[in-house]
Amino acid sequence: MTTLTRTLKGMPPTAVFGVAIITIYVLVAIFAPMLAPYSERAVVGGQYLQWSAEHWLGTDNLGRDMLSRLIFGARNTLAIAFFATALAFAIGTVAGLLAATLGGMVDQALSRFVDIIMAVPGLIFILLLLTIFGTGVGTLIAVIAILDSTRVFRLARAVALGIVAMDFVEAARVRGEGLLWIMRREILPNAAAPLVAEFGMRFCFVFLTIASLSFLGLGIQPPLADWGSMVRENATLITFGDITPLLPAAAIALITVAVNFVVDWILHKVSGIKD
């Protein structure tokens, strides 16, 4: 516990802000049904109602309560982004560690495959795949996870290569340790910090990608509430000077800023750069 409190004490204000925001978002996502005044799907009034005591943030283009959709949106958007990132991470880390530890043909094959995938801009690839497989939450998660895993692969491989070159890994090898032990006990604990930071960064990236796709109408589909689509559906209000449609966009921006602040702090700690 003392190390934890010491770590927290040394946190810069940006990181404290980041951790606080992330905590609030997670709580809102978990307790969404209890917090939201209305259901995310129910039409509860006229279209584009002004902010009022009844509908704090007014209603949307179909007459659904904006605040409730914003709250449920936290749940949908965060959960989908989190699953996609976690999946990308699992695939990328395992493949990256394997490539670095085994080397030779396995490394060559995996690396060349990833090079090819990364030779195509990510969003373009996603759009191509979505054209083929159609839009849907499952497809969305799978497509984004697979494409994003290439970036995780590159990082995990690079970090692991640095560790594999160390004498203690050589010592474990000539001791006769198996592949699993070397990856799990020798490499992974030393790669943990950069990988955690990368998880944060990838989460931001995936989150923004999904938000962008939803904004384009190609991501999370109605009637699920989702911040990206909410901006698109109500964008016309902006031309009348109403900021309501910017609220979901701001919600997206806030969580990515928060995660990035935390990641930045972790990276700073890991690299040991002195102030």
Binding site: D167, F168, A171, R173, G176, R185
Partner: peptide, 27 residues
Amino acid sequence: YRERTKADLRQVQMIYQMADTALNPRQ
């Protein structure tokens, strides 16, 4: 070393120059 038995491997041990890289910093 891949073809050596555990008993073979046990017989030959090494002490490294740089103790910093020879010991896993997380163990």
